[in-house]
């Protein structure tokens, strides 16, 4: 088991004929993901990679192929529209990789998804990978391994760094999930933690947070009350100056709140050790998780 999907989940890709969309669709297929359809308006009837049929719209793709999940690689101005379209066609799991989506577009999308019970991951995220089963997104498949550690991150490439360290130390993963660094996202830190807590296969959890907002503080509270498995964390942005947006629209220290120090204190108060360096996640986890 894992969270969100299995190797049997039928996946479609919106923006499959774009440069990044095409590149990463091939990589998803190579990893074993069941990519059953692509969508690019005006390209209906074509084949992608000689194996994947392309449709003009998501509804046609779902009707023809039974696609259950969508991965979105369209440009920022079209991202919210693509999410609406997928949800309207009955897709229940949407992963939006697109970076730079206007925040108010995401605000508009949210009630539509909530009403339909849709799980959205992202936008501005690497998606997730279920080692040995499937990947919906852009995480490099060669750095993960099957195992029992769940990992949730607000970052992209920092996720890879930590996953790589876990794998090299023999700590495989159930699911590695990057939720994205924007202020308004579908699956929150907390949603992901709850999903991992409900997954019987996940025996330990790694949290990768960063400055801005209070997701880590709220997670600390939840974990203290509700979880028994070992949890360790890393927080990026100790050296970030206040008031400056550190790349991610959500990564900004405002009015003295959202600092790395506050988050570290909240996590440690809840019994969750916080690593000084990304690689230190491994020894911290091993120390806490004796039967690893």
């Amino acid at each position: 088991m894992a969270i969100f999907c299995t190797g049997e989940t039928k996946v479609l890709v919106q923006g499959i004929t774009g440069r990044d969309g095409g590149f990463h669709t091939k990589s998803m297929i190579d990893y074993g993901t069941k990519v059953v359809a692509g969508v690019t308006p005006g390209r209906g009837g074509q084949m992608f990679n000689e194996t994947v049929p392309v449709f003009d719209n998501v509804a046609d793709a779902v009707a023809e192929t039974g696609a259950e999940a969508s991965v979105i690689f369209v440009p920022p101005f079209a991202a919210a529209g693509a999410i609406f379209e997928a949800a309207d066609a009955g897709i229940k799991l949407i992963v939006c990789i697109t970076e730079g989506v206007p925040t108010n577009d995401m605000v508009k999308v949210m009630p539509f998804l909530e009403d339909r019970g849709v799980t959205l991951v992202g936008p501005n995220c690497p998606g997730f990978i279920v080692p040995g089963q499937a990947k919906l997104g852009i995480l490099p498949g060669n750095i993960v391994a099957e195992g029992k550690v769940g990992l949730v991150s607000r970052s992209g490439t920092l996720t890879y760094e930590v996953v790589d360290a876990l794998t090299k130390a023999g700590l495989g993963q159930t699911t590695c999930l990057g939720i994205g660094g924007d202020p308004v996202i579908g699956t929150s830190f907390m949603d992901a933690i709850k999903a991992f807590n409900a997954d019987p296969e996940t025996k330990a959890l790694v949290l990768i947070g960063e400055i801005g907002g209070d997701a880590e503080e709220r997670a600390a509270e939840y974990i203290k009350e509700n979880m028994d498995i070992p949890v360790v964390a890393f927080i990026a942005g100790r050296t970030a100056p206040p008031g400056k947006r550190m790349g991610h629209a959500g990564a900004i220290v405002t009015g003295g709140t959202g600092t790395a120090a506050e988050k570290k204190a909240a996590l440690e108060a809840a019994g969750i050790p916080v690593a000084d360096r990304p690689v230190d996640v491994v020894p911290l986890l091993k120390e806490l998780w004796k039967d690893a």
């Binding site: 607000r154 970052s155 992209g156 490439t157 920092l158 960063e210 990026a236 790349g247």
Partner: peptide
């Protein structure tokens, strides 16, 4: 990546 960039600074 913004997260890795912050972690590198740290």
């Amino acid at each position: 990546g913004a997260g890795l960039a912050m972690a590198t600074m740290d």
